[in-house]
Design a protein around this nucleic acid. Structure first.
Lengths: 166, 166
DNA sequence: CTCAGTGCAAACCGTTTGCAGAACG
DNA sequence: CGTTCTGCAAACGGTTTGCACTGAG
């Protein structure tokens, strides 16, 4: 995916956040922040580690995990769990009101989209159930355009069972 | 949560599914199926194990996991990952068109609700992005009525960082 | 009687933690 | 210089797997 022009200022914001918290701004933390803020992808820790290695940084996984915690706490980065068995991280720079995700079951790519409808749903939920919404997650799984055009089909999970109440 | 009157027929359907696949209908598989089909809750494997123990069945975790795979393949049970670090399972008996979930961040309770809006969203996604939706996940996290009324508040995650492009 | 299932324990895998040595401020 | 961080390796917790034994058909 592409680069982010205002990444430097976000990296600076993270530095300020650390200083405000009385935490050291280390080389490792800056490197991890650079990787996240210069990508618009939804990166896993393994992918972050790989990109760090490509840049010549050799940073232990534990440090990456610890830095991700800080980035999430700083609110500059969002954590996602798309049910793949590991987490993904996305900086909040590009995604102003665009919070929802399309996940391709073939290639794993993640596309963001906006869903104004969800706010109406949340209002309804508050009225009908007395439930107070704090955050939500709207994810649509399927085939992205290019995989679909490439002829990919969904596994359909094979087996199934006729639902009929005998 | 409550009982399900048509659980017996669902258990029978699972037995038929197994036979159709040429798989043995064992006592353990029947016990596990009984536990899920007689509950409307979203159960974790640990909770299933505990309920089995309460009934006097002592079934190994490995067997429970293996049976859950079969139940999911049979399409009689749905797997959920609410980001708790483990999976939850829900039978498909009660939830006809009701697929979405409200998850209480205080007590962990899960309430189902229906969201017709999502179908409109999926249609739009197909048209705008060429993305072919297969399934979706709409989850709203917040405080359920009783926790809210009991005065619970959301942690607000403490720290944050002013988002301003310097 | 045969083939798949079960239970146990070990393996797995993403993530977390403890600790000695290295850096930040 | 004290305090926090880093890297390594070991620990963790949910899930999966290998294997000898049991049980369904």
């Amino acid at each position: 995916m592409s680069e982010t022009s205002s990444a430097p200022s976000f990296i600076r914001l993270f530095g300020r956040y650390l200083r405000d918290q009385g935490l050291p701004v280390t080389q490792q933390r800056e490197s991890v922040a650079e990787v996240i803020f210069t990508s618009t992808a939804h990166l896993s820790v393994d992918e972050i580690e790989e990109r760090l290695r490509e840049r010549g940084d050799r940073i232990g996984k534990a440090t990456i995990y610890r830095t991700m915690d800080l980035l999430v706490k700083s609110r500059l980065v969002e954590e996602h769990d798309f049910g793949e068995g590991f987490k993904r991280y996305e900086h909040r720079l590009s995604q102003q009101p665009i919070h929802e995700h399309l996940i391709c079951l073939e290639c794993g790519s993640v596309t963001e989209f906006e869903s104004p409808e969800i706010h109406r749903v949340e209002r309804r939920i508050r009225e009908e159930y007395g439930f107070k919404p704090a955050r939500h997650r709207v994810e649509i799984y399927g085939l992205c355009k290019s995989c679909h055009e490439a002829g990919a089909v969904l596994p359909e999970d094979g087996l199934f069972c006729p639902i009929e109440t005998v």
